[in-house]
Design a protein around this nucleic acid. Structure first.
Lengths: 132, 132, 132, 132
DNA sequence: GTGGTCTAGACCACA
DNA sequence: GTGGTCTAGACCACA
């Protein structure tokens, strides 16, 4: 699992996915960073190298990195490379996003008369229990 | 509120919404049907009429209807119009979709070490209680 | 001045400028919007049209528009065009940015022993007076 | 604090800074010279030595020195090293630069209807007072 | 070697 | 017609 965890499985992009490639790359690395698989300060693969690994265009990887930088996951230095930024409040940010999506789902369910509690049970959630 | 509920508030489309117009129409009607505001067998507004009401292109409404038909919410009769499909497992279908999305969120949360129970609490969910 | 104000002076890009083209476009339109020359809801020139006017590449204009959208100045709708977003707090945002830059300058001046008051006088600023 | 003032704190470069390294070096030394920490005639650290101290590439330091020389802060003597240039209108030059930037900000503010006086107050400036 | 910008041109989704 | 994504390939700034 080591190499997989570190993103070294060649070409994990799904070309059938409706999401654009640059977004798949962005999401992938956001997850790796949030999980701590990539540590703060660690160097990212270079734009060109990752592009080759994924058999995609450097511009596409560039766009993904720019997005990751904008969202505070990376910083890039011309001539040196791209690096994982120290945690900051990335976790809090992600947590808020998840809470938001969760809220939307529960609201949708109630609107059409579905009991949220039952919905939760259906997807394996158990109240008052360790869930894992 | 009657006409509002039935979608007769003129132009409820949000043009600033990033979602395409046809999708906003689709979602709107799916909701109206699932809530039972539009009853099985009831006739849908004609493509042209709805397009006028929404000040949008008939092609766009057409596409929304096609999508609703594809998903089993409508059926159309040549020369007569489109109608809300009866009974159906539409609810079950929607329920499955929601459970799926819910599952994905809880999984994402766990992956990055966020406690799902706490996440639920954060968005106003209370265990062992009527939630409304 | 009308057409100039509305950006219809062909090719106001400065190719000698060290700032990239997409940034010059971004700044230009931020200013036009903040000044109110372009009103909320008003349609922006299409990506292709502006690219032609500026004799630049559509991708470059696209990037500028994406940036303007990210910063809350525009919203774009596929198939319809790009539009000026309602004010929101763009002014407050710009004001904070200017205050920040002003602060930095005054700090720099003091560090090397330049009297800020005199500096202000040098660039035409008069205390206790209408300044225009 | 002595050595710190003289730039001998090892590695004061900020690698997360978006500004290139050579520019950080340039700015640092411009400030030290303008503040008088480095006196006219004083010898600069050798390119190699400074590069080692900063754990950076000699080429990068070289470029910074070239820039400082170009701007009149240093002069170099072949075979002997680089030295801080004497007297100079460096102060006047810097003062002009600051006045220029200040002017630009006040102009920008007025263009979009922000009162410069208020902007100044916002960043801690008080008229008719010693400001420190 | 690294990242950043730009061009020319393709193809897609949407109205 | 509109904007959005992607490719191939160039050239630049920086270390």
């Amino acid at each position: 699992m080591y190499s997989a965890e570190r993103g070294r499985v060649l070409n994990w992009i799904n070309y059938q996915d409706s999401r654009p490639i640059y977004e798949q790359i962005t999401e992938r690395y956001k997850l790796l960073i949030l999980k701590g698989v990539l540590a703060p300060g660690e160097q990212m693969p270079s734009v060109r190298k990752l592009a080759m690994e994924l058999s995609t265009n450097p511009n596409t990887v560039q766009r993904a990195y720019a997005e990751l930088e904008r969202q505070g996951f990376l910083y890039s230095v011309r001539g040196r490379g791209s690096f994982v930024r120290g945690d900051s409040d990335l976790h809090a940010q992600k947590r808020a996003e998840l809470a938001e999506r969760l809220s939307a789902i529960l609201k949708e369910a109630k609107e059409i008369g579905i009991d949220p509690a039952q919905l939760l049970r259906e997807c394996g959630w158990k109240e008052n229990t360790k869930n894992d």
